[in-house]
Design a protein around this nucleic acid. Sequence first.
DNA 1: TATATGTTATCGTATATCCGATATTAGCAA
DNA 2: TTGCTAATATCGGATATACGATAACATATA
Lengths: 96, 96
Amino acid sequence: MKKCCDMKGFLSFLMLHLIGKQSMSGDDIRTELEKRKGTKPSPGTIYPVLKTLCENGWIEEVPSQGKEKKYQLTSSGKQELKNANKKFMCMFYDMK
Amino acid sequence: MKKCCDMKGFLSFLMLHLIGKQSMSGDDIRTELEKRKGTKPSPGTIYPVLKTLCENGWIEEVPSQGKEKKYQLTSSGKQELKNANKKFMCMFYDMK
DNA sequence: TATATGTTATCGTATATCCGATATTAGCAA
DNA sequence: TTGCTAATATCGGATATACGATAACATATA
């Protein structure tokens, strides 16, 4: 049976939100999402989204060493997240 | 540019939520969603979802007169909404 | 240097969402 | 009954999501 509220469509929003709280790598994000969703998203899910967020200019690499690439929000990304939060709230303000 | 947080994927969840608050017709739902999203979903968006929710046994027609069909949650639908709310909260608890 | 390990990246595909356009139906009025 | 209106229903198609599988890459260790 088709599921209800299966979180489809909010991945980029969530990822923007997570990166906004703290700079994160793709793997950090997978781990954090596992905590929230119960299932760990596959690499093929996360990395293309990271790429898109970069291309949109919403996140950028944190200059660093190590094999992990950490990302942080750009100022444009902060603005986008702000807008997205607003839309989210309008939509779901009475959810409990 | 691809949008972030465009509400895709949460339509059935939202519709279940709205019908849970008050019995509603397809058109009522379109009007309410317009308030929340800013844009009014097309009939081709709403009615197939209503049909699916019926087929899942989550909503049922309210016996009534008039050309509008009002729907209400079934007990199974109430349970499903409860589960969905729980998942929603796990996912978005720290959203602001 | 060579190997192992873990992170990142890409590709093709299946699925679901949602829309616009169009048809159908039900009730109302003349 | 006939026409009008509004709600409902259906269809095809465009788009996006997310996955599994696989490859590439960088770092650390032997």
